[in-house]
Amino acid sequence: MIVYGLWFGGSCYRDPENRDLEVFPSLVAARTAFLARYQYGIWQRSRFAFVHRMPVQVLTPCVGADCSMLLYAGLDRLTDPSWRLCVGPRGGIRIERL
Rank of each mutant, 00 (worst) to 15 (best):
M1L: 15
Y4H: 07
G5Y: 03
G5A: 07
G5D: 11
F8A: 00
F8Y: 12
F8P: 00
G9M: 13
G9F: 08
G10F: 06
S11G: 00
S11N: 11
C12Q: 15
C12F: 12
Y13G: 01
D15C: 07
P16Y: 06
E17G: 06
R19S: 10
E22C: 14
E22Y: 00
F24P: 06
P25L: 07
S26Q: 06
S26W: 00
V28F: 05
A29L: 07
A29C: 10
R31K: 15
R31E: 14
T32M: 03
T32K: 09
A36D: 12
A36H: 10
Y38G: 05
Q39R: 15
G41E: 07
R45W: 08
R45N: 08
S46H: 04
R47G: 05
R47A: 07
R47F: 03
F48E: 10
F50L: 00
R53D: 03
V56P: 00
V56C: 00
Q57V: 10
L59P: 01
T60D: 04
C62V: 02
A65H: 12
D66Y: 08
C67E: 11
M69V: 12
L70D: 09
Y72D: 09
A73I: 02
G74V: 05
R77V: 04
L78S: 01
T79I: 03
T79M: 11
P81C: 03
W83E: 02
L85I: 09
L85S: 07
V87D: 02
P89Q: 04
G92S: 09
I95W: 00
I95Y: 05
I95R: 13
R97E: 10
